[in-house]
């Protein structure tokens, strides 16, 4: 015991003490940081939430001219089986005149199927236009009753306060009549 007391005062003892201080401090700090991670990560989407991050939709029952609304990540997704007139109308527009210029090709994978998130880019209302009886606006697309934004047959903003087109989600055709929304093919 008495030898140990003597060595504590020497330079050797000092450097040993410094080493222990830094080593213990570093290991302790790393450990605390790592221990925090599981708690933070627990607040990320859980596995069952992620499992529903993609949705498969069977399009075969949707006739030409009809539209369906599916729920994806808690939001409505509009799927419209467009008529040849719809498509023609969408393609005929001079893109440079649009508020949010996008061609119809940029917004569709197959021209007869338009898939987009049905949330008005103004303040988040769900526009009308899915049901045959709904108002569709001047461009025969969608009409947001909240503040009067109007979208054309490609879901592009044409009139009203909304700044952007209705967003197209990532999706892919699994076969001719099935799409998976939520990830690219």
């Amino acid at each position: 015991m008495s030898q140990a007391v003597d060595s504590a005062g020497t330079a050797d003892g000092e450097s040993r003490r410094d080493f222990l201080l830094y080593a213990t401090g570093a290991v302790g700090a790393v450990g605390t940081a790592l221990a925090v991670w599981p708690f933070i990560d627990s607040m990320n989407p859980a596995k069952d939430v992620l499992a529903l991050a993609t949705v498969e939709v069977d399009l075969s029952p949707v006739a030409v001219g009809q539209a369906i609304t599916v729920v994806w990540r808690g939001k409505p997704v509009f799927v419209r089986h467009r008529t040849p007139e719809d498509i023609e109308q969408a393609k005929a527009v001079d893109v440079s005149t649009l508020r949010d210029p996008e061609t119809d090709e940029e917004r569709t994978i197959k021209p007869e199927w338009l898939v987009m998130v049905g949330i008005c880019t103004h303040l988040g209302c769900v526009p009308k236009g899915q049901k045959p009886s709904d108002p569709k606006g001047e461009w025969n697309g969608w009409f947001c009753v909240c503040h009067g934004s109007q979208y054309d047959t490609a879901g592009r903003i044409r009139k009203g306060p909304a700044p952007l087109n209705l967003p197209v989600p990532e999706y892919a055709f699994l076969d001719d009549t099935t799409i998976r929304i939520g990830e690219e093919g």
Partner: peptide, 21 residues
């Protein structure tokens, strides 16, 4: 990890307590 950390803590604690004995 905890065994390493506790070992270090023990060594450091002994080192410090040398002054007190």
């Amino acid at each position: 990890f905890l065994i390493v950390l506790t070992g270090l803590l023990y060594a450091y604690k002994r080192e410090i307590w040398k002054d007190a004995h």
